[in-house]
Design a protein around this nucleic acid. Sequence first.
DNA 1: CCTAGGATTGAGACCGGACTCACATCGATT
DNA 2: AATCGATGTGAGTCCGGTCTCAATCCTAGG
Lengths: 362, 362
Amino acid sequence: MNTDGSRRRDVTVADVAKAAKVSKAQAARALGNYGAVSDDVRERVIAAAEELDYRPNELARSMNTGRSNTIGVVVGDIENPHFGLATRGITDTAKASGYNVILINTDEEQSAEVDAVRVLLDKRVDGLIVAPASSVETAHLKQVSDSGRPLVLLDRAAEGLDVETFAVDMSTISYESAKYLIEEGHRRIAFVSTIRAEGPYEAGMTLDSSQISDRLDGIRRAFEEAGLTHPADLVRLNAGGSASVKEITSELLRGPEAATAIIASDGLIALGVVEAIQEAGLSIPKDVSFLMYDDFAWTRLTTPPLTVISQPAYDMGAAAAAALIRHIEGRKASAPRPELVAHLVKRGSVGVARSVDVMSQS
Amino acid sequence: MNTDGSRRRDVTVADVAKAAKVSKAQAARALGNYGAVSDDVRERVIAAAEELDYRPNELARSMNTGRSNTIGVVVGDIENPHFGLATRGITDTAKASGYNVILINTDEEQSAEVDAVRVLLDKRVDGLIVAPASSVETAHLKQVSDSGRPLVLLDRAAEGLDVETFAVDMSTISYESAKYLIEEGHRRIAFVSTIRAEGPYEAGMTLDSSQISDRLDGIRRAFEEAGLTHPADLVRLNAGGSASVKEITSELLRGPEAATAIIASDGLIALGVVEAIQEAGLSIPKDVSFLMYDDFAWTRLTTPPLTVISQPAYDMGAAAAAALIRHIEGRKASAPRPELVAHLVKRGSVGVARSVDVMSQS
DNA sequence: CCTAGGATTGAGACCGGACTCACATCGATT
DNA sequence: AATCGATGTGAGTCCGGTCTCAATCCTAGG
């Protein structure tokens, strides 16, 4: 395939310099566009570089500039469209500013996240965007900010860390949507999440995820405001795979104390919950109301279309990247921080609670 | 935040060596686990490294080993779950072999892809996985393989390039699904794709994407086998955004020569098509049959659940990464190449064509 | 007790750029 | 015509590792 030998050495500035009959320093200057170079030399160097098909070695360059023009991104699961979108926001913004992205997936595992951060630091990325798997175990993140390299948090907050965080205000939107459900007569409102926790949920329990805590907090506030208490037995964590979600759902739907509304904490959970509801022969929203986080396009295609909480995932990613790059380049914030607000998009999956319905008919 | 000054220099082998009172060479050997080092020295160096919290600079390491343990991935759109899954397959496999992934999104734009490849090469990645935007313009890819760096293609083939390609056999699955539709009485089968082409489709036209060509080829074969001809006017390319997809769909559904079945070339298109069908007040599959590429979880939640062509996107990514790493490490193929086959998953969106239905009732 | 040969060790070259520094060169100023 | 500041230029150092090479240290065999 190669014209010469099996693996030709890359062309370096030295080669170009020799071809252009100038010193290495001059060639480097002409190529790197810095320092003073006469037109004559510049032309000869550029020509020689073209001729030899010279390409600078970014590794070498990074090594003595100390900048790699690369940012590291650590997310829990790119497969999840929520992060897919956010990642897209990050890469688009990064590219526009001339940065590349190294992406590492952690599967939401703490140890994988620790490793990921270490690897990226070792690779001397200019900065990091992390969607922390845990809001509590943040030692590895503290190390990052201690090392002096910029860090920005995405989607979730982390305790005791003085870094910019780009996430929507979950407590507020959760409060609003719970209030909406309560107004529709729901009292038995279930909440299903993948988040891992030891044992079943109890009110006031400390959770790994600030996001989920905030959501539960919002629900609790809505209930309290209505002079009610949110039943803790309807909060179901540790919903692993699709099978587990379905089992949990059918459990929630059984018995005299069955849930009348279910909130799915993300798109993946939603799929399992809706399927389980369908399999149980129940209809949405007549028998059960349904509400989910993230407004994916397909939620408009189901019958009925689903009522969702839309989150500005793309904007979140874009804002995080912009802020990180700002930090890297040592600039002050110019534009005000974009508001990252979630919206309740009412479509057809939330209806009047059954019991209330019955009462009003009596 | 730092204890000393604002931005402390990183700890280097030299620092560790000094602390352990040995030469730089010995420290490097102990740290790098190569060469001969006495137990005494090793212990002292390890202790000093721990004490100073030494982390090797991967950039420097890469520079003189020539290996970066990083692979570059170039895809059209991570936001698309098809690539999201494939990317997941790549990163999982890469991680298992100790490689990192640099991801670049091209928005399916040729020029962006050329840039992306160049950037990755400049960063001295050990190898590249590319989902080429065009199967025709492949000069930049040829450069990669000429440079001696391993390259593997994902999802789509490219002309005149002697590189491993991991993609499903589109022609076969397309043939099978078209045959299925024909057997159900469909003659007016439409095909909607985002792929850009100049002007409307004509039979035998050269397309940028081998994937789409193969699919159309499969459809053509199925029609020919049945002694029929696939109407070229039902092949609609250049379906840009959601609005454009809807417009095209409603156009296909109008008039006496309306399509009785529509094949959506990917998940994004599918959303627009189904929405347009619903908005037109038509029902699936009574009025129109619908078939789409990619078996996303939500396709089971619509009413009716959608008949789809499932593709092993994750496996495709995983296989591509495995092959690339094999090339990088200069090993021969051990396991046979995994078969990447697509399957027709019959659910509820394909029914008997209307005209035939009428006939059989008469 | 002496020595051959393997185990250790340190000095320094090197990877491929960026950048410092000392030394021209040259037109402009007075 | 002598001086001065603004370019141009090349030699060489540095970044932080890896790796070669020659020197030194040991220990077992003679």
